[in-house]
């Protein structure tokens, strides 16, 4: 029996006059992996960043674990708008993990300290338990031996795996991945995707913005193709990636010369 962990309806986002998201709907079940593809500027990263309120939606409803975020305050573009309180959002972010394209590790802390920071500072977990949990998560991403290193000493792939461990340490209900392999050297992409594959196999709910179509094809349950701020095509990986119905989707996929199934 599946349970919707996230429901988004009519999400709009403006940056000034620029209408970046033009009404996006999405439902994500617990334990499922959703991959979002689309060219840059299509709004996929913005959409992801609205889900943990790194950006505030301009209009539209976000329901996380059965609870609507914010208080309804009006309407715009035919969708309800919401007023958000920082306190609620801060609490919400502890349940929604995020991994960034540029890792965003804390350079003044060791790998271990990076992974412990969230539990200790935010969740007030005791040091002993936090250390224990950090070791587990570093083992999971295969970097326990780097625990005492500073991030600057690690390769991009290793840094990204630390970032995943750091997000995992919060025991999030959903994890958001924002093009996390896009700034890596090609030979380092695999190690990061493997960690994500393992996470998915363990039943983590994941929303992934990616250009790794092979990864999306083999692991996603839903694939969304975003185009100019709307979901242009949506379905199973077979439907969207192998037999796309829309011309835009076909055109986008045709650009990937190295994508064979």
């Amino acid at each position: 029996m599946s349970e919707a962990i996230l429901r988004v309806s009519s999400l709009h986002k403006y940056f000034g006059d620029h209408h970046v998201l033009r009404g996006v709907d999405l439902e994500v079940q617990r334990g499922e992996m959703v991959c979002m593809i689309g060219s840059s500027g299509s709004g996929k990263s913005t959409f992801l960043r609205c889900l943990n309120f790194m950006e505030y939606p301009s209009a539209g409803r976000i329901e996380l674990m059965g609870k609507v975020v914010g208080r309804e305050s009006g309407a715009r573009d035919g969708a309800p708008t919401y007023a958000y309180e920082e306190r609620e959002l801060v609490g919400l972010r502890t349940h929604v993990g995020m991994v960034f394209q540029q890792f965003n590790l804390f350079p003044h802390m060791t790998v271990m300290q990076n992974v412990m920071e969230g539990p200790v500072t935010v969740l007030r977990t005791g040091r002993e338990e936090a250390t224990e949990r950090a070791r587990e998560n570093l083992t999971k991403v295969g970097l326990l031996d780097k625990a005492d290193q500073y991030p600057s000493r690690l390769s991009g792939g290793q840094q990204q795996r630390v970032a995943i461990a750091r997000a995992l340490a919060m025991k999030p209900d959903v994890m958001l991945f924002d093009e996390i392999t896009s700034s890596l050297d090609p030979e380092l992409v695999g190690e990061v995707l493997n960690v994500m594959r393992d996470l998915s196999a363990e039943g983590m709910t994941m929303i992934v913005v990616t250009h790794e179509l092979g990864f999306a094809y083999h692991l996603a349950r839903q694939v969304l193709f975003l185009y100019e701020g709307v979901i242009h095509e949506q379905g199973t990986p077979d439907e969207v990636l192998k037999n796309p119905q829309q011309e835009r989707t076909k055109g986008f996929l045709a650009g990937f010369t190295d994508f064979y199934f």
Binding site: N52, M54, V90, G91, L92, R93, T94, G97, M98, F100, Q102, N104, L105, F106, E117, G118, T121, V122, L123, R166, A167, M170
Partner: peptide, 11 residues
């Protein structure tokens, strides 16, 4: 990115 890294942890 440092602000966002911390913010994403719920700080």
């Amino acid at each position: 990115s440092q602000w966002e890294g911390g913010k994403a942890l719920g700080m």
